[in-house]
Amino acid sequence: MNVSRRTNRTVTATALGTALAAGAALLALTGCAGFEYREDVCGGGEYPVLWVGGTGSACVPDAEEPPSGYTRYPEGKVPQQVDDKWDVYWNTHMLDADGKVVEVG
């Protein structure tokens, strides 16, 4: 009877190991769909600012005004994560000295 208990445990452990390996393989094949990491444009306690006359940007501490040559992004067009809609948009657009949005060309 001890032999059959060991055999059942071995079969159960083998089945569990096979199931875990299959799950890991599935995650590897799907590229971990649904587990996307998005990097913030700025760290905690900072906000992004736009370089006037170019496509550059920087991060400024929340309590400070933008440095000379930089300005706040227009309301509603502030990038939050790298490669989000507005981060990509500002790679091809800029603010001119009059505050007008201009396509970079």
Rank of each mutant, 00 (worst) to 15 (best):
G17S: 09
C32F: 15
A28S: 02
E65H: 07
C42L: 13
T18S: 06
T92I: 06
P48M: 01
D62A: 14
Y89W: 15
T30K: 11
R72C: 05
Y70M: 12
V60Q: 10
E46K: 02
C32W: 03
N91C: 02
G23R: 12
G54D: 01
A25I: 15
V41H: 00
T12R: 03
R5G: 12
L50F: 09
A33W: 06
D98V: 02
L95R: 03
A33Y: 05
E39R: 13
N91A: 13
T30V: 02
T71K: 03
D96T: 03
T71H: 04
T14V: 14
A28K: 14
R9C: 06
Y73D: 08
S57W: 08
N91M: 08
T55K: 10
Y73H: 06
A58H: 08
G99L: 01
V52D: 00
A97K: 10
E46A: 10
A21P: 02
G54T: 12
A97S: 14
Y37C: 01
A21S: 00
T14I: 15
P61H: 08
D98G: 04
R9M: 14
A97D: 11
E46G: 00
D84W: 00
P74Q: 01
V60D: 06
V82S: 15
E36Q: 14
K85R: 09
G53S: 11
V49D: 04
E75P: 04
E36Y: 01
N8P: 07
A22I: 10
V104Q: 12
L27S: 04
T92V: 09
D98W: 01
Q80F: 15
E64D: 11
A22G: 06
G45R: 11
E36K: 10
T14Q: 08
V60S: 00
T7D: 14
T12P: 06
C42R: 02
W86L: 11
E39F: 09
G44M: 13
V52Q: 01
Y70G: 02
T92S: 06
R5H: 00
E46M: 09
